[in-house]
Design a protein around this nucleic acid. Structure first.
Lengths: 227, 227
DNA sequence: GTATGATTCAAACAACTGTTTGAAACATAC
DNA sequence: GTATGTTTCAAACAGTTGTTTGAATCATAC
């Protein structure tokens, strides 16, 4: 019984401290201190600091991605084979994440900020299982978007999806960054408003006119002249 | 004479190692090893590791922001008081950054990746002078954008600017992240193409319809019915 | 009660951290 | 040449890191 309690307390403390100071700058002594457990408890319950980090991610990420897939399933079932509205797809993917990020009490907010930062700087040993957790989800959403946007090349969609991940990451970890730079602070206290803002920005970006790419390696002339 | 060489070699090695492993995970012994200088050289030339980090940023950031202000000056002078096209403003701000990021040889690319990550996780002691370096630039570009988009509230512009910073950050540090997740790798070998992609995405986002913000602290009903 | 296994605890471990030191090597001016 | 100031170097410093250890405590079943 005490096991669960201790594990949970360590995970919660670690998640919060990792978010605040990063992995390397957070020591096991800080974690066990905040969790009010013995130092050796981390190695006893998780084996090592690296395994603890992985578990911090696994705990939330698995649920998050299951939720995303589940909602996409529901949406596609409702549509019955017809392509979805791109905005609906984005709403599922980012809506679930932002909903989690809005959960200040359960620690979801802390985790999402951590995830955003880690995603852009995957320490070698998280990269592997992060890819593992994300692979299926990314594939599903990419396929849905390609189907929803028949006119847009798949590569372009992937890039724009990538840009959107960046926007979301900053939106969540957000105010820390802009706050430091803009004195007239942005109000991020309202998750609904943030969600609405981010979503209209993303949809605008997703539906933007395609860039004029010139002189690529596989340039294809418009009209084939006689050779 | 040797001083300059040593300082420079340390800064270059530090920049590259910080980008790859982060500040905390990079040790002075790694840096001095890569730079092929004595361990004590860092403390002799920079005073401390923290000062070294600050100098790594200062070296590039000062130039980068000067460049941005300079180009904005030129643009506004040409316009002669008339509001600029929003896309032109973005082209200056992000174009300069992406040009630097495209500089693989001079180390600019490495630095921009580092900057993008640091911006979203400012260790307490970089935050201060990072804000210092950015304050003037942000203010200028914000003002220009507000002038260029008279219909859009200033707060909305700031948010969208923030989202764009996120998109750019991911675009630069980019492929590491998406690469790990999408097997059909994105080709980021062409900076021109990346620039074009990012720019049309951003402009699309910037010009997107305003979000419908409901039930804020100042909710205003559409039609006031009889009570 | 005793026995068995899981969990906690204080203490120690070796390895590594940023920093300091004092002598050596170097450059430059006289 | 000597003198002076700067830069390099190997070695050591004290402090912190993640991890291990072996005894103590707890819970549960018999």
């Amino acid at each position: 019984m005490a096991e669960v309690d201790t594990r949970q307390r360590i995970l919660d403390a670690a998640e919060s401290l990792f978010t605040e100071h990063g992995f390397d700058a957070t020591t096991l002594r800080q974690i066990t201190g905040a969790a009010e457990v013995n130092l050796a408890a981390v190695n006893y319950h998780f084996g090592s600091k690296e395994e603890l980090i992985r578990e911090v991610f696994r705990r939330r990420l698995t649920w998050l991605n299951q939720q995303r897939l589940q909602e996409l399933d529901r949406l596609e079932a409702e549509a019955g084979g017809a392509p979805l509205k791109p905005s609906r797809i984005l709403e599922v993917f980012f809506g679930v994440a932002l909903k989690m990020a809005a959960d200040t009490e359960g620690g979801g907010r802390s985790f999402m900020r951590l995830l955003g930062r880690t995603y852009s700087k995957p320490s070698e040993f998280v990269r592997g299982f992060l890819a593992e957790e994300y692979a299926a989800v990314l594939a599903r959403f990419k396929a849905a978007l390609i189907k929803a946007l028949p006119g847009v090349p798949g590569e372009e969609i992937l890039w724009r999806f990538h840009f959107m991940l960046g926007a979301m990451s900053y939106a969540i970890s957000g105010t820390d960054a802009l706050h430091m730079v803009a004195e007239d602070a942005l109000d991020d206290s309202d998750p609904e408003a943030l969600y609405a803002r981010l979503m209209s920005f993303m949809i605008g970006g997703l539906r933007a006119p395609l860039p004029k790419l010139q002189a690529g390696p596989a340039k294809r002339p418009r009209i084939k002249k006689a050779a």
